[in-house]
């Protein structure tokens, strides 16, 4: 660091904690004001994290009860935390049940209704084709390879089942694998999050099919709604200019902060309606949100939220 104002080769040692204490302090100070060096060190540190992955190996089964007992002795568990946190569910649970539900609906869908428009898609048939194509990036990431299937419904279902089987077999490594999310923005997230999005999109298309068939709507259960909110909020937050406090009522509800800084407004609506807004089936004006504080910040939040869908 003496010959150059930048960190230079010290970036490598710094990323793996191999500098002297004096150098560590000097690098940290430099990085706080130099974006280029900060970016390099951030990237090298992330790479270094991967090295640890190569050492992963399961501990002996006996260690589990020892560690959990020691933890609970240090801090007792809460009596009923499950009720407050319905989101603790298996990564494929919501997707699995929505696939089964949509397939039940499609089995009963008369041929003439397959040609019915389902906004924003020209027909139900093209909508299922679109869903199959969106599922495709998860299928590819999970290593699913399928022979061509002619029938639209069968092609979708066979691929969805193959994804579920692959995820059940693949374990944590597969769930961590980055996947391109469906939607307008180019965004890669771990496969476990892409599965939440798959469950979300499958549910909203089941709603679309119910509408075409004249059946009453069905809300996602509390765990799925909480999962959708948890999945969408970080993405939404990153796109917001100002923070909003989001109060979601009903199943899957809770209070959340979205966006940077202190909240400029508070937006209250049922969690179910928020999910429909995220899917683009409601708009900022039709969502029925109760707004307090800065109306512009609230409207921006609702408008951006309505662009988070997969169509």
């Amino acid at each position: 660091m003496t010959e150059s104002p930048h960190v230079g080769d010290l970036a490598g040692p710094y990323a793996v904690g191999a500098c002297s204490p004096t150098e560590t302090v000097a690098v940290a100070a430099h990085v706080s004001t130099c974006a280029a060096c900060a970016a390099e060190i951030d990237s090298l540190s992330r790479t270094a994290d991967w090295i640890g992955v190569t050492a992963a190996r399961p501990p002996s089964p006996g260690l589990r009860s020892r560690v959990l007992a020691a933890a609970l002795a240090a801090r007792p568990a809460a009596a009923h935390p499950a009720a407050a946190h319905p989101a603790v569910a298996h990564p494929t649970a919501a997707y699995r049940s929505q696939v089964a539900e949509l397939d039940r609906l499609l089995a009963d869908l008369p041929p003439v209704l397959w040609q019915q428009p389902s906004r924003p898609h020209p027909t139900v048939r093209t909508m299922i084709g679109h869903l199959t194509s969106n599922d495709g990036s998860v299928a590819a990431a999970a290593g699913v390879e399928l022979a061509p299937v002619e029938d639209v419904r069968r092609r979708w279902r066979v691929q969805a089942d193959a994804i579920l089987v692959a995820v059940d077999r693949g374990g944590t490594g597969l769930l961590d694998r980055p996947v391109r999310l469906a939607g307008r923005r180019e965004m890669r997230r771990p496969l476990r999050e892409a599965l939440i999005q798959r469950g979300f999109e499958t549910w909203i298309h089941a709603e679309d099919v119910r509408a075409v068939m004249g059946l009453p709507p069905q809300r996602p259960d509390a765990a799925q709604a909480a999962g959708i909110v948890g999945f969408a909020l970080p993405l939404l937050s990153a796109a917001l200019p100002r923070a909003v406090s989001l109060v979601l009522t009903g199943d899957g509800g809770g209070t959340h902060l979205a966006g940077p800084g202190a909240p400029a407004a508070e937006v209250t609506l049922p969690a179910e309606r928020f999910c429909r807004l995220l899917a683009g089936r409601l708009t900022a004006d039709t969502a029925g949100a109760v707004v307090a504080g800065d109306p512009v910040a609230a409207h921006t939040f609702l408008t951006v939220a309505a662009t988070m869908g997969c169509d």
């Binding site: 933890a71 609970l72 809460a78 935390p81 499950a82 407050a84 946190h85 989101a87 603790v88």
Partner: peptide, 13 residues
């Protein structure tokens, strides 16, 4: 969130 709420299930996961 689960850990903060004291969920033993979250700890196990």
């Amino acid at each position: 969130e689960g850990l903060i709420a004291g969920s033993e299930q979250a700890l196990a996961e």
